[in-house]
Design a protein around this nucleic acid. Structure first.
Length: 582
RNA sequence: GCGCCCGUAGCUCAGCCGGAUAGAGCACUUGAUUCCUAAUCAAGGGGUCGCAGGUUCGAGUCCUGCCGGGCGCGCCA
């Protein structure tokens, strides 16, 4: 049940009824009608802009049209009053019973509350992380990982058929560098003195065990061999080892992707040649010479004929190169094939989650997606801005050589996966994020993870205390509670906030903004903490009322509702709701 | 030089398809604890929503120009 969308349907029916009676024109555009929560609780429970958005096409003054609508609205089930306000808003007040029924529904459906079918089972592909298989994930990957994972969960809860996907960039020059780095570690494991890691190779310690395992398995057969002899084998081995590392890191963060697509396999299966042949057939690929970028001309710039994709025709600024000078495909070329592959697998809605440093790449990829699907598929790229790692307000030095940790795994070991996940969603993806190691484990209102978890734990605490005070309540289910005993404004306000959960889920899914979940949970936690303290100041409002099983049962039902919604939200974020804080 | 993102309270940031008197936390001031976890709560001060135009019944939100910060800009991914 979603009170807001239900009521919107009522309004639409009223307008259509008036049109049928010729009191309003036929075929009005009703799409802009919205039902919201008024800014001030004093205005009422719901408000709608219907009269204002329809006034012009209806040829009526907003307030006159509002008055017409109000006449019908007061007859709607559950409505206490409907009033015209301001420029033509209609404020609606609902019977308390409506809100109590809402609570009853939350208790009945549990964590499924908030599930929606607006997705209609539509297939959505969310590609995220897609880090190069050259090392463990670092803190920068953490944000994209959590963002993509929770966005996918949101789609699921909103009724879409989601695929979580990881693109393995195992075909470029980076993985050759990886292979050489591993060969060095392999020789090291066999006793060679390798000295300092040469410039241009990966220096990380994490390659030592990879080299050692290789030495164990293969002996010294490649020790003094030429690169041509070992490159393919060691590269394949190293990529597998790195992907195993990445999967472990993702698992530690609670992320599990459905599909891993290998760039190399796309290339070897001829998918790149195929898609580019198709585009060539449509005259979207040509050989031309690009202008150097103005104002920032690379030192070694020289005009050169290149194989180019007509990205300009699809909204990009310049046409984009597809081939390197050595004849191999650019990353862009194989990425076109990859997106074509996703489209061919039936996805018309594609989402890519990228880091801020890839922002300059968005237009060409959306252009290419339009081209390969001939406009049938849309790609939306979500850019996650950088994460600034701090400790007590001071930036943490990100030296690879120094002991300061930078990997995702170290971060998880330090503060826990739940904290990492929650904090990564406390900002819009467009805004840079400060991740302060000291602050995120602090137990204060300033730390949203703690604040929300504390509210959830308090809900459990009340239940534990109540079980002692009223053992007979344990065997009773919430359905037996008389919710009419919930009369205080603060109690009803809490239910009204919970009633917003389904629309929060829907709007966050539609806007592709998982951070709204975190903000909502913070608000709900604040309302709950407020009611708690109110009970300290007015003892008749305490959840557990001495010698009054009925009131206690009703309030326990309310608390269970809060707990359900918070737990539902936390689980959507992939965060474990805790029952006790220590 | 061009493109993308950002600019909202002293600081860090929310603000849903344009909607009513722009919100939260921190910091500051004051108050609440024999009592379900005070790890919390209540109240108060604090704003030219970067600047200037435009569209609209209505703009923090949309459009244009400018200013400031970040990221990126042919054969890295």
């Amino acid at each position: 049940m979603n009170i807001f969308s239900n009521f919107r349907s009522e309004i639409v029916q009223i307008v259509e009824g008036l049109a049928a009676d010729n009191a309003l024109p036929q075929a009005l555009d009703l799409s802009r009608i919205a039902v919201d929560v008024p800014r001030e609780a004093a205005f009422g429970d719901l408000s709608t802009n219907a009269a204002m958005v329809l006034s012009k096409p209806a040829g009526m003054k907003p307030r006159d049209l509002a008055a017409l609508l109000v006449e019908k609205m007061i007859d709607v089930e559950g409505v206490v009053s409907a009033d015209v306000a301001g420029p033509g808003f209609i404020n609606i007040r609902l019977e308390d019973a409506v809100w109590r029924r809402c609570l009853a529904e939350i208790l009945a459906v549990g964590k499924a509350y908030g599930d929606s079918d607006i997705g209609g089972g539509e297939a959505v592909n969310v590609e995220f992380v897609s880090a190069n298989p050259t090392g463990p994930l670092h803190i920068g990957h953490a944000r994209g990982s959590v963002f993509g994972d929770v966005l996918a969960s949101l789609f699921q809860k909103a009724g879409y058929a989601v695929t979580r996907e990881y693109y393995i960039n195992d075909a470029g020059t980076q993985v050759d560098v990886l292979a050489r780095s591993v060969h060095l570690r392999y020789r090291e494991a066999l006793g060679d003195d390798i000295g300092d890691i040469p410039e241009g190779l990966y220096p990380g310690d994490y390659l030592q065990p990879v080299g050692a395992a290789l030495a164990d398995r293969e002996g010294d057969r490649w020790k003094d061999a030429t690169e041509a002899e070992w490159l393919l084998d060691i590269r394949a081995y190293a990529i597998d080892a790195m992907m195993a590392l990445v999967r472990e890191d993702l698992a530690a963060l609670g992320v599990r992707q459905d599909v891993f697509t290998s760039e190399r396999q796309l290339v070897e299966a001829g998918k790149v040649d195929a898609v580019l042949e198709t585009l060539t057939g449509r005259d979207l690929i040509y050989t031309g010479v690009l202008e150097p970028p103005k104002g920032k001309k690379p030192d070694d710039w020289e005009p050169r004929p290149q194989t180019l994709f007509r990205a300009i025709e699809f909204g990009d600024e310049v046409d984009r190169p597809l081939k390197k000078s050595d004849g191999s495909w650019t990353y862009f070329a194989s990425d076109i094939a990859y997106h074509q592959d996703k489209y061919a697998r039936g996805f018309k809605t594609l989402i890519d989650v990228w880091g801020a440093d890839h922002g300059g790449y968005v237009k060409r990829m959306t252009a290419a997606t339009k081209a390969i699907s001939e406009g049938a598929a849309t790609l939306e790229v979500k850019i996650c801005q950088i994460v600034k790692l701090l400790d007590k307000g001071e930036p943490v030095k990100m030296s690879k050589r120094a002991g300061t940790f930078v990997t995702l795994r170290d971060l998880i070991d330090e503060v826990g996966a739940d904290v990492v996940r929650f904090i990564m969603l406390t900002r819009s993806n467009d805004a840079p994020l400060d991740f302060d190691l000291a602050k995120v484990t602090e137990q204060s209102r300033d730390n949203p993870v703690f604040y929300v978890q504390y509210a959830h734990a308090r809900c459990h605490s009340v239940a534990r205390m109540a079980a002692d005070a009223f053992p007979e309540l344990e065997s009773r289910d919430d359905g037996a509670a008389n919710l009419e005993l919930l009369e205080d404004e603060a109690e009803l306000a809490l239910i009204k906030l919970m009633a917003q959960w389904p629309r929060i889920v829907e709007s966050a899914a539609q806007a592709h903004e998982p951070h709204r979940i975190a903000y909502y949970l913070y608000d709900l936690a604040a309302a709950f903490h407020g009611l708690w303290t109110k009970g300290k100041e007015q003892s008749e409002l305490r959840f557990i009322v001495e010698n009054d099983v009925a009131h206690t049962a009703a309030r326990l039902a309310l608390v269970r509702g809060v707990r359900t919604v918070i737990a539902s939200g936390l689980e959507l974020m992939g965060v474990t709701p805790v029952e006790e804080l220590r």
